[in-house]
Design a protein around this nucleic acid. Structure first.
Lengths: 185, 185
DNA sequence: CAGAAATTTCAGTAATTTCTGAAATTCATA
DNA sequence: TATGAATTTCAGAAATTACTGAAATTTCTG
């Protein structure tokens, strides 16, 4: 399978970005190929399309499954396994954020709490710093947990409003500003 | 300089997490050491504290400077350079988000726009998929640009409110729901 | 349930990244 | 502006990560 120029360039880009995103080149490329493919692909098609070894494809697909980024499909009358990425862009986005949080943030939050509990010897400044960092992560992950629960429709609206949202918040009290906008001249 | 147990464990953790965060072990460790240090440290102190080579320290500090994560300080009567991390946890957070967006998201947004402009041959599905991805990134970065402009105080309040914010949005219109809460039974 | 197809595992190799020590350069001040 | 301290650069070594091909295992199907 020879890739179309569009796929080719997209696949190469994902391969290059892979290392910045915490995956390796082939994992990035496999994902890119599946993402653009209208039909599910099997491991041999991926192997041929990317010019890599069959075993590398197998490992890459396992990695993508551990990220929950690909879905397994079965084609009637074909015993091979086929793979796709979710159709819904929001589903993909939610998964990506959840998985990166799990890998990049959660372990540190756990470690910080352990350090605070265990009473390891350290100066006051260091202890205060660790507490500050933990609080920041808690604020961020707390907000994330709230947002993540919202239906996509509401999330889109909220994000589209952007900073208009902030105008609603009374700066001094932290409470929501009630009553209509524009009426308080 | 022998590190206190608290610093030791924190430094090791940052070293291990480094690769997931897109930096290498020593860069993570240098940052961790500076983050917990009440006083600015010079390169020799870092070198000794972490047990690494002087040149590695130099390269690590350069990397941290390219991330804008450390500040240069000069101590009167000492010609060596001293380094600190910003005191303000929010400053650190804002920088981290901005830098990761710059490295991990912006290049892809640019590439997607190029692909759409250049009219590379590709099937309809792939083109639609690329457009969808670009739109998602634009929605996210647009929201980020709005939030990033807010004063910290407002941002904290917004994040603390969390999903209460979403209740304000009228689901069907996308407009803000005006009038008092709780009054529309 | 035997055989073949599909998939996974894994040891060895290749590629890449990180780190070091020595040399070169920069910088401050006497 | 010459000197020595501080810092950076960089080629090679070490460590880590990625990839391959062959063998092992699993999974279907006749």
């Amino acid at each position: 399978m020879k890739l179309a120029p569009l796929q080719q360039e997209f696949v190469l880009h994902f391969g290059e970005m892979g290392s910045r995103w915490g995956i390796n080149r082939t994992v990035g490329q496999i994902y890119a190929l599946l993402f653009l493919s209208a039909e599910p692909l099997n491991a041999d098609q991926i192997t041929e399309g990317l010019g890599i070894s069959r075993s590398n494809t197998s490992m890459g697909l396992k990695e993508l499954q551990s990220w929950n980024l690909v879905r397994l499909r079965h084609v009637p009358g074909d015993r091979r396994e086929y793979f796709t990425t979710p159709e819904d862009m929001w589903e993909i986005t939610r998964i990506l954020i959840a998985e990166r949080k799990k890998r990049e943030i959660d372990p540190t939050l756990t470690k910080l709490r352990e350090l605070e509990m265990s009473g390891r010897a350290g100066d006051d400044y260091a202890e205060a710093r660790i507490a500050e960092l933990r609080e920041m992560i808690e604020l961020m992950t707390g907000f994330y947990n709230d947002m993540e629960k919202l239906e996509t429709e509401r999330l889109v609206k909220l994000m589209t409003l952007g900073s208009k949202i902030a105008g609603l918040i009374d700066k001094t009290s932290g409470a929501l500003t009630l009553g209509r906008r524009k009426e308080t001249k």
